[in-house]
Amino acid sequence: MNRRPPTVPKPARNARLTARGPGALSAVLGKQPIGTAFVTPYVVFLAAIFAYPLGFAVYMSFHDYFFTAPGATVDRPFVGFANYVTVLTDPAVQRSFVNVGIFLLINVPLTVVLSLGLANALNAAIRWRTFFRVSYYVPYVAASVAVVGVWLFLFNSNGLVNSVLGPLAPDPSWLVNSKLAMPTVALYVTWKQLGFFILLYLAALQNVSKDLYEAAAVDGAGRLNSFLNVTVPGVRPATTLVVLVATVTGANLFTEPYLLTGGGGPDGASASPVLIMYQRGIEQGKPDVGSAIGVLLVIGVLLLAVVERRFVGKEEQ
């Protein structure tokens, strides 16, 4: 009679494997070396494109830094917080932060409401659904210069919008009005980026169970109640993402005021911190001051993102 070889119990076998300890490869790459290998190129990319420039910007902001000829060796003394004092006492910088605050107050809520409402409509079985989805996404992928040309045609002094409004048109016109320039830029950015956020919500709506809508209908809920009590809570993680992405992209506003208002006009009413950073650092040759603006902007966006994450995403935790 053949006897089967005795088997080692699983606990004893696991203890023996644990006693051997991790190999050299696992010690370096972790428990999932293949996953680490796939992630490593992106980590290197982030370090080269984001981490190193940010660290170098922090270094410049604490020194008397200026551009020199290639290969030249000059002394760049440490100046402490002098550049930050210069930035915080600069009226143009102060106004740019107020401007971007106005922009975010208009752009972020409008982006969330419009993108969620349109995504919910496009998720239903309507005619020409694919056409409408593509139509909303085209401005997002179109070249900014071309789209700005269309917007200037609509909102300049003799544009189509003023022609339609007639005597109700603002004077001065939209983009040269100190009170309306930044709101107009905010509307433009909302319209241009709407397609991207609609796609995010469309993807999130696929994960909302249809059984919830059927249960709400059985309870007598109409379309509005179903939207408020089923759709809105169901896409809350996507809303958190939309708010964070819209905040980060809005805080880095540059192209739109640069092209639409001729570099932040009128009189700095539409200037953003990134635009002022470009003007100070590149045009005026003060990269140390520009770096200080950038560091303050990064700190401000991080704090704002933490606050938004706590309030917008608290119910999903």
Rank of each mutant, 00 (worst) to 15 (best):
Y201V: 04
A269V: 14
N123H: 14
M60L: 15
A181P: 01
V100R: 03
V28I: 14
A24Q: 08
P70F: 14
V87R: 04
V74Y: 05
A217S: 12
V93S: 03
G30C: 10
Y65P: 00
L200Y: 08
V189Q: 10
T86D: 14
A92W: 08
D90S: 12
P91S: 13
V235A: 02
L187V: 14
I126N: 11
V85R: 04
G222A: 05
V189S: 10
F78T: 10
G313W: 04
S61F: 02
V298A: 13
A221L: 03
V87C: 02
V93I: 15
M182Q: 09
K192Q: 13
V85S: 05
P287A: 08
G222T: 01
A169G: 02
V185A: 07
R76G: 00
R129P: 05
T89G: 15
A251G: 12
Y188E: 11
Q279T: 11
G35P: 10
R223F: 05
F196R: 08
V74H: 07
A51K: 07
A19W: 05
K31T: 14
V301M: 07
L54H: 01
F50W: 14
V176E: 10
G281F: 05
D288W: 03
R133M: 07
N156A: 04
V185C: 09
I276W: 07
G250D: 04
L175H: 10
V245H: 00
T240N: 06
P170K: 13
I198Q: 00
P273N: 08
L296T: 09
L303A: 15
T111F: 04
N83S: 12
T111V: 11
E316P: 00
E315N: 12
A19S: 09
N120D: 06
D90C: 02
R4G: 03
E283Y: 09
A92D: 06
V98M: 11
P6N: 03
V100F: 15
Y201C: 01
I102D: 00
T68C: 15
M1C: 13
G220E: 06
S157N: 12
F78C: 07
V113N: 02
A238C: 07
L244C: 10
G149K: 04
K286R: 15
A204M: 03
F227M: 04
L241S: 10
V230W: 05
